[in-house]
Simulated assay, not measured.
Amino acid sequence: MQSFDQIFPRKNTNSVKWDSIKATYNKEDLLPLWVADMDFMAPQPVIDALATYTRQGIFGYSVVPETLYQAIQDWEKTHYNYQLAKEDILFSPGVVPSIGVAIQAYTKAGESVLIHDPVYHPFANMVKANQRNLVTSSLKIKDGHFVMDLVDMEEKIKDQHVKMLILCNPHNPGGRVWTKEELIACGRLCQKYGVIVISDEIHQDLVFAPHQHRSFHTLDPEFAEFSIILTAATKTFNLAAVKISMVYIKNPALKKAFQAVQNATEQNTINTFGYVATEAAYQKGKAWRKELLRYLAENITFTQNFLQTHLPKVNVMIPEGTYLMWLDFRTYGLSPKALEDKLIQEAGVVLNNGAIFGEGGRGFMRLNVACPKETLAEGLERIRGVFGE
């Protein structure tokens, strides 16, 4: 089994996480703990499958293998008791492109789309880029984690005539794994007002016990009538570069509308390496994922203890899922730009500025702990050297 402590040099590999830093910040020797990919080698069975495909040496057009459909169905049934027929599964280059397709398929220009605040920033970008009206509902912090404000959501759904909700489950950047009761309440609200739900579940496999991921479709059979699921193996197995995701749609009318936009924009053409990697990951990656979750949990605990000991003014939201930690620097009284500049110029560490996730993210930073513990410890020590007392 792979050692997640091993450090793999990623500079000069065209890595967004490592090689875009100089162009972004005009500064060398910054430690990247930002972009949401992992500094871990992919599972060996995936590497082997891709190598086997590469050795055959011909890279022509390909079809989706039946074995891939079966691998997806088996994975969802085994891990989430989610029953999928082959006909329920569509493919897309990524979750964000799928959000764009869904916006075009299910809403018209000027209509309202609701997202939470803070939340993964491409949600807002895609809504605005497609000339839809962006409506946000602020998440509340209760007992150290995010909760939905259903009263606020309902008011905005009614007042703004919301047509679509883009849901992040598990939540990025807060790491919240929504409970069955929370998701049902959200679903009932959307059902009441005829709101289509686009559920981004790409972090579904990165959930820590005793928390459990529940796909939106599994909560109530009726929910599949007004929702679609977006997910991928790429986040779980560190395969972002192979550019593939899945779209699960059980309602024939929703599927037809989604496919119509895909066909008009060629958003249904997938890199064959994505097919190969996803099938291998789902068929042979279970043990790797188990060890990954253990290692990530250790890194999260290490970070929590470090901050409590050395940086008690930084409040941390302990993630129930994902490898992202939401750090609250508001007690320092810095603007988002001043906070980011201090981390960059003085600490030499790159985190994601919380403000990009919405107004509710001002004064926060998002930390990626999916790296060898040595790298993580160095980053935390750099932050301590500037913000410690």
Rank of each mutant, 00 (worst) to 15 (best):
S3W: 00
F4S: 01
I7T: 08
I7Y: 03
F8M: 03
P9L: 02
R10W: 04
W18H: 01
I21G: 01
I21Q: 04
K22T: 01
T24I: 05
Y25A: 03
E28A: 02
D29C: 01
D29L: 04
L31E: 05
W34M: 08
V35G: 00
M38W: 01
V46T: 14
D48E: 13
T52C: 06
R55E: 02
G57F: 06
I58R: 07
V63N: 15
A71Q: 12
W75F: 14
K77G: 05
Y80T: 09
Y82R: 13
I89L: 10
I89R: 03
G94H: 00
V96K: 04
P97Y: 02
P97W: 04
V101Q: 12
A102D: 10
Q104M: 14
T107N: 06
K108Y: 11
A109M: 11
G110T: 11
S112P: 08
Y120I: 05
P122N: 02
M126V: 12
V127C: 10
A129D: 10
R132V: 14
S137I: 07
L139S: 08
K140Q: 07
K140T: 06
D143I: 08
G144F: 08
M153R: 05
M153P: 06
K158E: 15
Q160Y: 15
L165T: 10
N172G: 05
G174Q: 11
W178V: 13
R188D: 14
G194D: 13
S199M: 13
E201N: 13
Q204S: 13
Q204E: 09
A209R: 04
Q212W: 08
H213I: 09
H213W: 10
R214P: 11
S215Q: 13
S215C: 14
T218Y: 10
P221E: 10
F223I: 13
A224Q: 15
E225M: 11
I229V: 15
I229F: 02
T231R: 06
K235Y: 04
I244A: 06
S245E: 07
S245T: 11
M246H: 06
Y248P: 05
Y248M: 14
I249A: 05
P252S: 15
F258Q: 13
V261E: 09
E266D: 15
Y275S: 07
Y275K: 06
A277M: 10
E279T: 11
A280L: 07
Y282G: 06
G285R: 01
R289I: 02
R294V: 11
N299A: 00
T301D: 03
F302K: 00
N305E: 15
T309E: 14
H310C: 09
L311S: 01
P312E: 08
V314C: 02
P319C: 07
G333R: 00
S335Q: 00
A338D: 02
L339K: 00
L339H: 00
L343D: 07
Q345D: 09
Q345F: 10
G348M: 09
N352M: 04
G361E: 07
R362D: 06
F364H: 15
M365D: 06
K373C: 04
T375N: 07
L376M: 01
L376R: 00
E378H: 09
G385K: 09
F387E: 00
